[in-house]
Design a protein around this nucleic acid. Sequence first.
DNA 1: AAATGTATGTTGAAATTTCAACAGATGGAG
DNA 2: CTCCATCTGTTGAAATTTCAACATACATTT
Lengths: 219, 219
Amino acid sequence: MKKYLDVLRKCSLFDGIEDENLIEMLGCLRAKVNHYDKNETVIAEGEPAKYVGIVLSGVVQIEQTDYYGNRSIVAGIEPSELFGESFACAGVERIPVNVVANEESEIMFINCLRITQSCSNACSFHHQIIYNLMKVVATKNLMFHQKIEITSKRSTREKLMTYLLLQAKKNGSNRFEIPYDRQGLADYLEVERSGLSAEIGKLRREGVIECRKGWFEVL
Amino acid sequence: MKKYLDVLRKCSLFDGIEDENLIEMLGCLRAKVNHYDKNETVIAEGEPAKYVGIVLSGVVQIEQTDYYGNRSIVAGIEPSELFGESFACAGVERIPVNVVANEESEIMFINCLRITQSCSNACSFHHQIIYNLMKVVATKNLMFHQKIEITSKRSTREKLMTYLLLQAKKNGSNRFEIPYDRQGLADYLEVERSGLSAEIGKLRREGVIECRKGWFEVL
DNA sequence: AAATGTATGTTGAAATTTCAACAGATGGAG
DNA sequence: CTCCATCTGTTGAAATTTCAACATACATTT
C-alpha cells in the first residue's frame, strides 16, 4: 500500500491522518486495490452499492446511458477522489449508474460499513474518518446541486456561460482549463456536441470568450 | 422544547431517538429556536454556513440569484425538514443562497459542529445522530441524482416517461399520485408547461398513459 | 513525410421546444 | 348560482436544438 501514499494523502477521506496511521488504518478497513484498462467497466449498474471507491491513478466517469445510447456524464472522478459513497451511505442496495475507467486506472475499494461502524479494534482514528466521509458526501451534494443549476438553464449558451463562470470563480481566475473534451463537455451540459461547438464559435466571434483546446478565458 | 416534540419526532435527524433522550440531547446540542415573520430573511447569502436549520412551523424557501441577477427558488422546506446541512457539513464558509420565510415560521438552529464532533459529555446518542445526518445528506444526494437522471433526457416525452416510470416503481403500482400541479411538474422536469400538456395529451391519445389531475396511470 | 484515426468546427434541413395567446375546466367565495 | 381567479389544454409561429454529413485540424504511428 505504501506506493499509494502520495495519492491517499490527498484524499479528503484521510484528511488529518498521519502516514503511519493511514497504513494501519487501510488494513483495519480491509482496503483492496484493483486495476482497470481504458474503457473497462469498474462497476456496472445493478451491482451491490456497499463499496466506496478511491481513484489512485487514471480517471473514472460516472455515466448513465439510456436505451437510445445517449450518454450522460454525471461526474468525472480523478486521482484521490471518491465515488460510490452516497449510495453506500444512504443504504442503497444496488448501484444505479455505470462507473467506467476513462483511461488505465487503479482503484481502491473500501467496504463502507467498515467506515460507518466502529471497528472492533476501536481504532482511534475512526471519528476522524467518519467526519471526513460526511464532508465528502456533503461536498458531492453541492456538486450535484451545481450541475443542476447549470443544466436547468434552457439554452446551450446559458448552460455554457453558467458553467464557465462557475469554473472561473472556482479557479479564481478568468483563465482556466476544463477536464472535458468537447464531447464530454456537451454530455455534461446535456446539449449536442455540434450545437456546443457552434455556440463556442459564436461567443468567440462576439469576443465574450477565448479558448484553445481545454483552456478557456472569459473576457 | 417540549411543544416541538411532535415535529421533531418526524425529523430524520432524530430517527431512533426516544423522546426523553431527545429533550436532553437538544440541550447538549445547544439548539435554539428563532421566530420569523412572513418574508423575513432567515439566512442571507454570505453569512456563515455553520448551522443546520429545522423548520418547526411555517415554510422557508431556498433562493438563489444567478450571474444575471435572476432569482430562482431552489427548494421549499416544510416542517420537520432540514436545510443548510450540506453547506455546514461540507465546511463551506459562507452560505451561497438566501433562506427566506415564506410565511410566519419557527426555526430551530443547531451548530453543525455540535453534531459532527463528540460533545464533551460524550452523550451516548451522538453516534446515532451522526449516522442519521450522514444518511440525510447521502439521501438528498440520491434525490439530486435522480433529478439529473430525469432531466438529462433530451425530449419532453422522455423526461416525462422517465419520471412517471420512476414514480410507478417507487410506489410499487402503475397508479399513483404526484405531488405537483402541471406547472410544478414542468418546472421539475425543466420543460415548458404548454409543451408538457401537449405531450401528456399525445401520450393519452396513444394509450400509453391515463391521468386525471395529479393521478397518473402507466398502461 | 505519409497514413491513419480521432477531435473539432461548420452547415442546412428536420424535428422539437418555446412563446404568446386564448378557451375551456375547475374550485372557491360571496 | 354566479363571479372570479387559477389551472389546464390547444394552437400556430418563432426560435432553438438535433441530426447527419462533411471539412479541417491535430496527434500518433510507421
